[in-house]
Design a binder for these strands. Structure first.
Length: 218
DNA sequence: GCGACAG
DNA sequence: ATCTTGTCGC
């Protein structure tokens, strides 16, 4: 598993972490990806969904059936999820302007979370929205929608942002992966999470992969 | 050495 | 991630 660490170091070096990237108004199509796993066995279903960034209407959906070939190891999630996710993305007939995934990007032990892998491997602007804390803490987040607090490493580097997308719900954790800055990533997150805690991209991909997996188990 | 640990 | 029962609120 040393190769995995070497690969993450390689990807981290290839990631574009300085470009501001596309602002919300500059994105026409935004894609979301997610993977669902069967309780029994190693079957999985990956989903890729493309939404109209303006209306959030679904433009295209793709699901691929696959097999888990890598265990879940905190810090190595990309190696478990990416093979099937890439396969689903390759089935799309449109090329999205932006990619949103579950989990972290820069806010990762080696600065190489899923969003970094996905962004570098696709060459598309990409950031991650995680639902639970990982390795970085933050100050209290205001209660109103849009309130935020930086995720900071020990040496004071800002690696992400805890962001409240809805009042009365826990914040999400945004971190960039490739070719987009944190400010734009958070702006996109808020636009994609108008009604719910999570971005519509994540909700749609999660729903699609879960429903398709259910049809397999039946 | 032990605990914590995205999905 | 997935499983599960009940509960709160629009």
């Amino acid at each position: 598993m040393d190769e995995a660490l070497a690969e993450q170091e390689r990807l981290r070096g290839l990631a574009d972490l300085t470009s501001p990237g596309p602002a919300p108004g500059e994105v026409r199509m935004v894609a979301g990806v997610d993977v669902s796993y069967a309780t029994q066995g190693d079957a999985l279903v990956a989903a890729a969904v493309v939404l109209d960034a303006e209306t959030l209407e679904t433009v295209e959906v793709r699901v691929v059936e696959g097999t888990a070939t890598f265990p879940y190891v905190p810090g190595l999630l990309a190696f478990r999820e990416l093979p099937s996710v890439m396969a689903a993305l390759e089935q799309l007939t449109r090329t999205p302007d932006l990619l949103v995934c579950d989990g972290y990007g820069l806010a990762h032990p080696r600065r190489a979370g899923l969003a970094v892998h996905l962004g570098v491997l696709t060459g598309l602007p990409c950031f991650g929205v995680a639902k639970t804390p990982f390795v970085f803490g933050h100050r209290d987040v205001g209660e109103e929608r849009g309130a935020a607090a930086p995720l900071t490493s020990d040496d004071g580097e800002v690696v992400g942002r805890a962001l409240r997308t809805q009042p009365g719900v826990k914040p999400v954790f945004v971190s960039v992966g490739h070719a987009i800055g944190l400010d734009h990533a958070c702006a996109h997150t808020l636009r994609l999470a108008r009604r719910y805690r999570l971005p519509e991209t994540t909700r749609a991909a999660d729903h699609l992969s879960r429903e398709h997996l259910r049809t397999l188990t039946r």
